[in-house]
């Protein structure tokens, strides 16, 4: 048994009161504990942004890397030590802007890790510029005359890129979020959760109340193994006004990247002895 408090760290968290990041962190702690994963056997990899500071506020191994690159780092960690539970986290700018290619490639690779995007639809740490999920027309510090671009749909990208677990959570529904994070970590393959959340300081438009009025859990009869249904559900909300489905959109069991590597059948790379001897290979050069 692991108690969620084991994941607590004494720290001075610098998030604003009311920030959605708190909910994700609590969900993550509770989920890891409920799955019986010990803090020293788990790694949280992040990029740059307010949410990417999470490794500093949690008692687990952390890698707080550079902007947009949480997934490549997490990929290296997981392939080197497949016995670790690896979670990558970051914001919408980190994952859908500068790091979008890594996100799509990670979906297609189906490496066994969890990716949580704290999607507040604004750049918070850099004090309020438009992000890839900011609505068209939104006035931000970088778009004083209104954002000229349409927002992207991360769930559509994830499903069409080959992710095997795709969900949307909401920071205002901790019970559901916890369940989603737990399922994502337990999932064998690349699990992705887009977590809608307010930015109480820089996103005045999409407040917690705004979301509360619109979110709606996906019907229990949704067949999440059906890709077409998952895609049409993902198309249901485009970032503007309207009902926002939350829950698991898509989930299938596919072989993971590591399943195709016989190198890992005898254990994690990090446990292997460094006793390579290329003498026989050298003979080929004679």
């Amino acid at each position: 048994m692991v108690d969620a408090s084991e994941y607590n760290k004494k720290c001075d968290c610098d998030w604003c009161p009311g920030c959605g990041n708190f909910s994700v962190m609590v969900a993550l702690k509770n989920s890891l504990a409920r799955l019986g994963i010990k803090p020293h056997e788990s790694v949280l990899v992040s990029g740059i942004g307010c949410s990417s500071k999470t490794p500093h506020w949690m008692n687990m191994y952390g890698f707080h890397g550079i902007h947009g690159r949480a997934l490549p780092i997490a990929t290296g960690v997981k392939l080197a030590n497949s016995e670790l539970t690896v979670v990558a986290a970051g914001g919408d700018g980190d994952g859908y802007g500068i790091g979008l290619n890594h996100f799509m490639q990670s979906c297609k690779r189906n490496i066994n890790l969890t990716y949580i995007v704290h999607n507040n639809r604004i750049y918070g740490l850099t004090t309020g510029q438009a992000s890839p999920t900011t609505n068209k027309g939104t006035i931000t510090r970088s778009t004083p005359f209104g954002n000229p671009e349409e927002p992207i749909n991360p769930l559509l990208i994830a499903i069409s890129s080959g992710a095997t677990f795709v969900a949307r959570g909401f920071s205002g529904n901790l019970a559901q979020l916890q369940e989603l994070v737990k399922e994502a970590i337990a999932h064998k393959g690349f699990a992705f959760i887009d977590v809608l959340m307010p930015c109480v300081t820089f996103n005045r438009m999409n407040s917690i109340e705004w979301y509360r009025e619109r979110v709606s859990p996906i019907n229990s009869d949704h067949d999440f193994s059906d890709k077409e249904k998952a895609l049409s559900l993902a198309l249901k909300w485009n970032g503007e006004d309207g009902e926002i489905p939350t829950g698991i959109f898509y989930k299938i069991d596919n072989p993971t990247y590591s399943d195709g590597l016989p190198q890992l059948s005898s254990g994690a790379l990090v446990k292997k002895k460094l006793d390579a001897d290329v003498s026989d290979v050298l003979k080929e050069f004679m």
Partner: peptide, 11 residues
Amino acid sequence: NATIGASYAGV
């Protein structure tokens, strides 16, 4: 970055 991740994990 994957190289860095792998090295961080000990290989």
